[in-house]
Amino acid sequence: MKPFEYYEPASLAEASDLLRRLGKDASIIAGGTDLLVEMKEELRSVLHVVNIKKIPNLRNFTYDPAAGLRFGALVTVREVETSPHVIGNYPNLAKAVSLLGSVQVRNRATIVGNICRASPSADTIPPLIADGASLSVYDGGADRTILLEDFFTGPGRTVLSPGDIVTGISLPAPGPTSGRAYIKHGRRKAMELATVGVAVSIEHVAGQCSDVRIALGAVAPTVIRARRTEDLLRGRRIDAALLAEAAESAMQEATPIGNVRASAAYRRDMVGVLTRRAIGYAMGGAR
């Protein structure tokens, strides 16, 4: 790893000033599990590393049945994975985070870090988008809120400018009739990047879908919502014929590439299979 200057700002204001002044050659370090790998492999040149772990109030974690879930930028993947609130109310997120790297990685990695890395195949992003998550961003002035699905502009790229710091994430509380699922498809069970990831959050009563969000991972330059497929399902009774229609529609919405992990055609096929399955699981079907 090449040498760098190291900073430990004690407040958001100090960190934001520093990052704005240092510009493109600076990076925040939170968990470091992606950043240090990229620096070691010289995929990224980072001359200034700004550690945000000395900044207070970024480790908060709260759940309220009305307000939902909210946690800070320094909350680790493992903390979210083992939280009874997440396991009970956001099973799709619990599942997705348990599949990210290893226990050792999850003990360091943060959810917000995984988001800001903006990988199209990030495990945490599809369920968070399906659940309607939004980010709080500090930029020196008042916090602004960005809906997670509007956060990404391309692989590794987000709407953030130098000096912007994501301080936390919030998710609305699940409705009384909601069902959720996340399916990660890979070549092996552990230590894997998703070939395709599908998250579904659905509101349903007696088989009738009143609202639904579907997020597809690793099949477009960013994680995307399958909006046409959602429109197809909304207000209708979910049956085998509609599921087949939804699968076909989701396949059309994906724009996968072929790479070392899978061909584009295979990814597209899997979007169909997994979308159908994930809707079934979210509706309470057997796994």
Binding site: Y6, G32, V37, S102, R108
Partner: peptide, 15 residues
Amino acid sequence: MDGRPVNACLVLAIE
């Protein structure tokens, strides 16, 4: 590290 297993290769010593 502080009761939790971590990869020492992904932690900066100064941290």
